[in-house]
Simulated scan of single mutants.
Amino acid sequence: MGDEIRMWWDTWAGNEPLYKIFPDLYKIEKKKRIMLKDCFCKENGDMKWKWRWKKQRLNQKEKEELKNLEELLQQVNISGETDQWIWKPDDKGIFSVASMKSLLVKSSKIPKSFSWKWNGWVPKKVNTFMWKAVNNNIPTMLALKGRQFISEWCNISSLFAFSTKDLINIHSQVKVSKNKRKGIQAVIFTAAWCIWNPRNEAVFQNKVIGVNKMKENIKALGYLWVKNRFPCSNLEWKE
């Protein structure tokens, strides 16, 4: 029907908004926020488009864009039904977490043989951050190599990681209880988060945070996140 779709701004014909496909026509459009329903009418069953240009005579480039636009619109079937969003990756057009996961896996650079379970003791944003890191979207994650204070805090042998994948799975190699392994992974994730954020602040805001302050942040956030998510209520931090 087009009563909830903006003619130029929404993606409804083609793979991107019309203002991007036909920029010269968009420049001379009088009503750039116009709704789709106001851009056409039906006469004797035929679709007729109503254009509102700022000028009467179009130049050659604008004429070419208009021709291409009308050819594109001929491929679109506008029904009388209520507007609704559809999820293209799904055959039925219905969004689901499963279809999103499938889409991410297909576009991921990670080998299919590699998988890991998200750590429920840290926020979702930290798990997402680690996912991006293992996709090599955050290369400075490798700065965590040699951060031996993590192993000292967890009272385990020194940790050696040569990739982000190693960081994610290194807790599974420690011979301790299941809960402690999960806690070690939570500390590693927290450390990665607390190292990355100051790096961004240093680059974009010229802020400098010392190593000691960074370590304190890791302790504070790690304790807060795990305590609020760990089923045991008497969790304590001991130096």
Rank of each mutant, 00 (worst) to 15 (best):
L159Q: 04
V122C: 02
V203S: 11
W196R: 10
W131V: 00
R199Q: 09
K61M: 14
K20F: 02
D90V: 09
W131C: 03
I156M: 08
K219D: 00
S172F: 05
V176K: 10
M47W: 01
I156P: 07
S177P: 03
W237V: 14
W153V: 09
L235V: 10
W9M: 14
K88Y: 12
N127K: 10
S108V: 10
G2V: 06
W131H: 01
A191I: 02
C154Q: 06
S177M: 05
M7I: 07
L224Y: 06
Q205A: 15
L25H: 01
Q185K: 08
V211S: 08
L159R: 03
D46C: 09
N137L: 13
W53L: 05
M47S: 07
S108N: 04
N206R: 13
K32D: 11
W12S: 07
K207I: 12
P111S: 14
N155E: 15
K132N: 12
Q75L: 15
K50N: 15
S108W: 00
G14T: 11
I21A: 13
K109F: 04
P23W: 05
K31P: 06
K145V: 00
K67C: 14
F22I: 03
H171P: 01
I86A: 08
I78C: 06
P123V: 08
L25D: 04
G14N: 09
K42P: 06
I150L: 11
C39V: 08
E70L: 12
L73N: 04
N179T: 15
